[in-house]
Structures are given as structure tokens and as C-alpha cells.
């Protein structure tokens, strides 16, 4: 450690599991605040930013991605052991991500569609959230996370207070910014009423219905919303697809999607993928 480095800075490490890196890049997207953040915390491990590595233990670990391999299972235990606070970032880490679609089909179904030689893969049959393996201190939702929520959690940790992170619906953010409700004023199916806020209602603000990337809001009544959309002309398969994206395995979404397509092996993405590949 160099002489001019303040000694009391908490250490922060960023870990990647099965994910696209978009969430950890949100930390770099905090451009105006980034230098101040590095003065407040010591970035100990963050391979998207630096090859420098400081050995643990760490005050805070940000964990991105879901657990999809045997190696992941071992490594997440190690991360937990080395971390005072373990904070997951993003839909993959919180609910298993889009890759959790594999959980609902016969093992090997998707690899056979995608890879020429799926036999080289060494992966688990399921994609599971970090919380299924270790104790998680805090979860940030979203695909990707909202960078200001990430900053808020870092600030809260620094000042030993509770983060200001809402658990209510996206609707409350639409109303606060004056976005006219797409679901009521147009034909757009919108998951906003059952999706957790945090994105500042980004998609509805540009005329696109919420696709639920922050996962279910607290106590989400997904069945009632789907029933309403059904009675307003939306096809079951469309609605199931709406629920089976980045938080497909979130129980509140999964349960209703399963009921909508009425069969255990839903695989609504399958026909599309086959078509594209033929």
C-alpha cells in the first residue's frame, strides 16, 4: 500500500459468476463519482477495472451472476467466507437470470440447441441465485442494476445507515415522474404493477411496457394482473413469455407463468430458437 493511501478505507471486491458483466460495469458507469468512490473505498478486486489484486478478507463484496457450475458452488462459499458484507448485484445473482430458463426443461435441452459439441460443457442442470448457496446481506435487483442504487448502497454502508432502496412497484416511479400509464392508456402489456422499482421507470418513460427486469415487487399479485391482461386480449403464450425473461425463476413470476402455459415443461422460447437456427 502506498504512503499516501488513507489507511481506514474499507475494501471492496467485485466477483463475477454466470453473468454478462453489465451490472459490475455499472460501477464504472458512475463516472462523475468514480474518483470520489475510490477515495472512500479501496477497490481490492475488480477485474473489469484493474488487474491489481489485494488479498482478502474484504469489507464488502459485490457479487454478480448466478451459480451454474460446480466451481461456482465452491467459489461462492469462498467469497462469503472472505466478505464482511456480501451484496449481490443484478437479476442473475438475485433470481438466477435468463439462464434459469434451463431449470424448467430436461437437462441438456438448451445446450443441444446452441452448441455444436455440448459434451464439452461442464455445467450444472440449474442456474440458481446466490442466496440459494450462501447468506446474502443485501440484494440489488435489475438487468442491469441501476447505478445510482449501487452508489446509494455504497454510501449507506459508508455512513452506517439503511440504504434508500424501494421495494414497491415501478408504478410509483411512473407517477412520480409524470409518465402516463401505458397499461391504462394504451394497449401495452406492462409488468410495472408487479415489478420492483429502482430503474426510475425507465422503459415506460420511453413508451415501452415494463418487462420486469427488477423482478417481483414486494407481495406482487402477478396472477391478478395476468388475469386482467388475458381478459383484454393478450395471449397466454405472450404473457408467459413476458414473465420468463430475466427473472424467469423468481417464484412469483414462475408460478403464474407455469399456470398460464398449463404444462410443467413450458419452454416457450424453444419454437422461436429452432426457427431462427433452421
Amino acid at each position: 500500500m502506498s504512503a499516501d493511501t488513507p489507511v481506514a478505507r474499507p475494501t471492496l471486491a467485485v466477483w463475477k459468476f454466470a453473468s454478462c458483466d453489465g451490472c459490475q460495469l455499472s460501477l464504472l458507469d458512475l463516472e462523475p463519482e468514480l474518483l470520489a468512490i475510490t477515495r472512500a473505498v479501496q477497490i481490492a478486486h475488480f477485474t473489469e477495472m484493474t488487474r491489481a489484486h489485494v488479498e482478502g478478507p474484504y469489507d464488502v463484496s459485490l457479487v454478480e451472476g448466478s451459480i451454474t457450475t460446480e466451481a461456482d458452488v465452491a467459489r461462492i462459499l469462498e467469497v462469503r467466507e472472505q466478505s464482511r458484507y456480501l451484496i449481490t448485484i443484478g437479476a442473475c445473482a438475485a433470481t438466477g437470470g435468463v439462464q434459469a430458463l434451463r431449470n424448467f426443461v430436461e437437462p441438456g435441452t438448451y445446450p443441444a440447441m446452441v452448441y455444436a459439441h455440448p459434451e464439452y460443457l461442464r455445467a450444472l442442470d440449474t442456474s440458481t441465485p446466490v442466496s440459494a448457496h450462501v447468506v446474502v446481506d443485501y440484494e440489488l435487483r435489475g438487468c442491469p442494476i441501476d447505478r445510482f442504487q449501487l452508489l446509494e448502497v455504497i454510501l449507506a454502508l459508508l455512513s452506517h445507515r439503511r440504504p434508500i432502496v424501494a421495494t414497491h412497484s415501478v408504478c410509483q416511479e411512473c407517477k412520480a415522474r409524470g409518465t402516463v400509464c401505458l397499461a391504462v392508456s394504451g394497449e401495452s402489456a406492462c409488468l410495472g404493477p408487479v415489478t420492483r422499482a429502482g430503474c426510475n421507470a425507465l422503459c415506460p418513460s420511453v413508451g415501452r411496457g415494463c418487462f420486469g427486469c427488477f423482478g417481483p415487487s414486494e407481495g406482487a399479485n402477478v396472477g391478478s394482473l395476468m388475469q386482467w391482461l388475458r381478459s383484454h386480449g393478450h395471449a397466454d403464450v405472450t404473457l408467459a413469455r413476458l414473465l420468463q425473461t430475466f427473472n424467469a425463476a423468481a417464484p412469483a413470476f414462475r408460478e403464474v407463468a407455469t399456470n398460464l402455459v398449463a404444462t410443467k415443461v413450458t419452454l416457450v422460447a424453444q419454437p422461436l430458437m429452432r426457427k431462427e437456427r433452421s
Binding site: H168, S169, C171, Q172, K175, A176, C181, G192, P193, V194, S217, G219, A220, N221, S224, L225
Partner: peptide
């Protein structure tokens, strides 16, 4: 409550 989404729209409008 079976129908209500608890989304809060009614209160905000």
C-alpha cells in the same frame, strides 16, 4: 385483495 396489485396507483393519482 385477490384482485388488488398493491401497486399504489390509486393513491398516487
Amino acid at each position: 385483495a385477490e384482485r388488488c396489485l398493491s401497486c399504489g396507483n390509486c393513491t398516487l393519482v
